[in-house]
């Protein structure tokens, strides 16, 4: 827990953030650039799906990020509620729009993939429906967070919402096993290893890393911005008193 509180100090966090941000940005651009090249030009066409397999290189990493971001939010929300950790609360706020963006991408690109492969844009399938609920949870968090005049009350109630909504993450993950879904079961994160050929697995993993670095970089930028916004509120408050 000591390391947790070491980075509760905004100044220390900002110093660390400034050091790692450039490296994260470079890693993001490298993985994104190479991932897109392999995804669009240098990976094989699927014998069944044809070129639509290229949608996988956006859809799957975006879906992974949708779950990853919400899980990160739940952990940070628990830390902020239990230990009153200010920076953890800011991390939840910074992550929400990023997670919502990836969830939106997963839903729409899944639909773009579903039309040629399943013959429909949307079906009330267990996997698709639970991811749609996840998207509403992200939106609900962001709305609830700003629904109070007192930021502390908004932070607390929205953190509780995140924790309550976390039950949806395992439902999404195991929906393809528990229910009879149109959506295919997992083909990468499986007990006995991926079932995807390496020529397709490589761009998929490159894009997955690219989206992770993207998340880290945008989150750091948003945390710094929120720390400044907090300092502005404090200074304005002090000016009003004096």
């Amino acid at each position: 827990m000591n390391i947790l509180h070491r980075f509760a100090n905004p100044t220390r966090f900002q110093r660390l953030s400034k050091k790692i941000e450039p490296w994260v940005l470079v890693l993001m651009l490298l993985t994104m650039g190479s991932g897109l090249y392999f995804a669009l030009f240098s990976s094989p066409v699927d014998y069944q799906q044809g070129h639509t397999v290229r949608i996988m290189y956006i859809h799957v990493p975006a879906a992974w990020m949708a779950l990853f971001c919400y899980t990160a939010m739940a952990i940070a929300a628990a830390i902020s509620l239990i230990w009153k950790h200010g920076l953890a609360d800011i991390a939840v706020k910074a992550t929400a729009p990023i997670g919502a963006a990836f969830t939106f991408l997963a839903l729409v690109t899944g639909s773009l993939w579903g039309k040629p492969m399943w013959g429909t844009w949307w079906v009330w399938d267990a996997r698709l429906t639970s991811v749609l609920v996840l998207f509403f949870l992200y939106l609900g968090y962001m709305a609830l967070r700003d629904a109070f005049d007192d930021p502390a009350r908004g932070a607390k109630s929205s953190a509780i919402l995140v924790l309550v909504g976390f039950v949806n993450v395992p439902i999404i993950k195991f929906s393809v096993d528990w229910w009879n879904t149109l959506h295919q079961p997992a083909s990468v994160i499986r007990m006995d290893g991926p079932t995807i050929h390496v020529d397709m697995l490589m761009p998929l993993l490159l894009m997955a890393f690219a989206f992770k670095f993207y998340y880290l970089w945008v989150m750091l930028v948003r945390i710094r911005q929120e720390l400044m916004a907090q300092r502005i509120r404090a200074l304005k408050h002090r000016q009003a008193i004096e």
Binding site: T52, I55, H59, L105, V108, T109
Partner: peptide
């Protein structure tokens, strides 16, 4: 028609 909108939207 399905692949390029995917990458464009992303």
């Amino acid at each position: 028609a399905y692949v390029w909108p995917t990458y464009g939207l992303a």
